[in-house]
Amino acid sequence: MSAENAWGRRYLMCPPTHFEVLYEINPWMHREVPVDPERAREQWEALVGLLRQAGAEVEVLEPQPDLPDLVFTANAGVVNGPQFVPARFRNPERHGETAHDVAWFAERGWRVDELPEGVAHEGAGDSLPFADVLVSGYRWRSDARSHAPLSAITGVPVRSVELTDHRFYHLDLTFCPLDDRHAITVPAVWDRYGTAVIDDLVPEPLVLELDEASQFVANSVVVGRNVVMPACPPRVGRVLEKWGFEVAVADVGEFLKAGGGCRCLTLALDVDLSGGGARS
């Protein structure tokens, strides 16, 4: 019998008031494909509704003009109990987000511990807890050399995985911890060393094909036994159902235009890695 994730019942989200594709920093972004602000708002609110329905709390980060990607709160940083490690964004287009993220956490009593200057790390987008380690992606947005200081600051062992396909620029497009035994994985876009590490770590992976991964299937939010997904191919749905999960699909098509799905729009606030990653 598997145990639910001990985290994932409280999220930080940012409404898409100023969301649009202003620049292109991943292969999904095309400035000529405009975002429909109305649809984006409806989709975002529907996602909030599904998460609340699944039993999660949602807290809100104030949107800011000229920071369209602030909606992707997953990249704000790494939360570890009372500690918040803010991201160091690779692209200058997103540098402006950090001050707002830090202010939000600091005002609410989180201790802010920063990564050293000069290394890039994009928060929970590239770091997800599984078992008692932090699985961290690197290459496109986060540096491999951010992993040692991240581990030193949080006190949590890090398992590094190289992301080999530019379309899957963040770990959370390729990996989704479901519970203490299961995770959605996309080894096709990992290097063979990272694949071996995850093979060793996850007893029962749900391995996605590349076409499934391209629908952002791994970019899902898990709330206990509920999984809120941008898309759910029938094969994936059957496996999740067999494992006892209930699936809800949230249409986040407007956000996919910027290369982000359900997970990218959320940052779990209740992650505490000091006492192990799962509750029984």
Binding site: V133, A144, H147, A148, S151, P157, V158, R159, S160, V161, E162, D191, Y193, G194, A196, V197
Partner: peptide, 13 residues
């Protein structure tokens, strides 16, 4: 190179 480089197979790589 430092960190969890053994378990992450980073050193081997």
């Amino acid at each position: 190179v430092e960190g969890h480089i053994i378990d992450s197979l980073i050193l081997a790589k």
